[in-house]
Simulated assay, not measured.
Amino acid sequence: MTKLPPRELEVLKLVAGGFTHKEIGERLGITHKGVTATFNRALLRLGALNAPHAVHLAVQEGILPGRARRRPGPARQPLTERQALVLVAAADGASLTAVAARLGTTRQQIASSLSGAYIRLGVHGLPRGEKRAAAVAEARRRGLIPPAEQERAA
């Protein structure tokens, strides 16, 4: 396991936290050049190519705590009007081209709206063939789109 001196570890933690070298220098009371030199030494010790690689390696080696992976779950935001409309139109399993024709738009715009809905509904990690059905079911469960019976009646 790679051991970093306290100052290099401190700078690496701040870089991992999203701070710029200038902000780190102000926070630690050292110059921008001092931060850069300290960070470059940490890169060399870790064998990293750049800042993201350094953070990745430090997490792998247990030097920095890893971030908990977000499990699929409730959306952070509800669906947009467009995403809900597209999801309702795509609920019957029609192709993207057919849904685009129904809504008078392009296949790419339909794909983009569905992709955004999958993320908001927490089903983006599912296998490709299961996403749409899971998204429709989740949106109905949350009351974001009407139940299938109301869809047919409309």
Rank of each mutant, 00 (worst) to 15 (best):
59 V>P: 04
29 G>M: 01
50 N>Y: 05
91 A>S: 12
15 V>H: 05
35 V>Y: 05
60 Q>R: 15
16 A>S: 12
48 A>I: 10
29 G>P: 03
93 G>E: 09
88 V>A: 06
76 R>G: 13
22 K>H: 10
95 S>I: 03
90 A>R: 00
70 R>N: 11
23 E>Y: 01
76 R>V: 14
76 R>N: 12
106 T>Y: 01
88 V>R: 09
119 I>A: 13
71 R>C: 07
62 G>C: 02
46 L>E: 07
49 L>M: 10
41 R>T: 06
81 E>L: 07
83 Q>T: 00
51 A>I: 03
88 V>E: 03
115 S>D: 11
62 G>E: 04
106 T>I: 02
81 E>R: 07
62 G>D: 01
20 T>D: 02
14 L>I: 01
96 L>I: 01
43 L>Q: 10
56 H>P: 12
49 L>N: 10
82 R>Y: 02
89 A>T: 07
24 I>G: 06
82 R>L: 07
52 P>S: 02
116 G>M: 03
41 R>G: 09
67 R>T: 15
75 A>T: 14
104 G>R: 04
52 P>M: 00
83 Q>A: 09
38 T>A: 12
30 I>W: 08
75 A>Y: 10
105 T>E: 05
81 E>G: 09
100 A>P: 02
21 H>K: 14
93 G>K: 12
20 T>K: 02
62 G>M: 00
83 Q>M: 01
33 K>C: 05
87 L>K: 00
54 A>P: 04
19 F>K: 11
88 V>W: 04
105 T>A: 02
82 R>P: 01
118 Y>I: 00
54 A>R: 09
119 I>M: 08
58 A>S: 02
72 P>Y: 04
30 I>D: 06
102 R>N: 04
72 P>F: 10
103 L>A: 00
39 F>Y: 14
74 P>A: 15
86 V>L: 00
53 H>N: 15
112 S>H: 13
106 T>H: 03
94 A>G: 15
97 T>A: 15
58 A>D: 03
101 A>M: 12
40 N>L: 11
94 A>K: 10
32 H>Y: 10
55 V>M: 07
90 A>D: 03
16 A>T: 13
85 L>I: 06
77 Q>G: 06
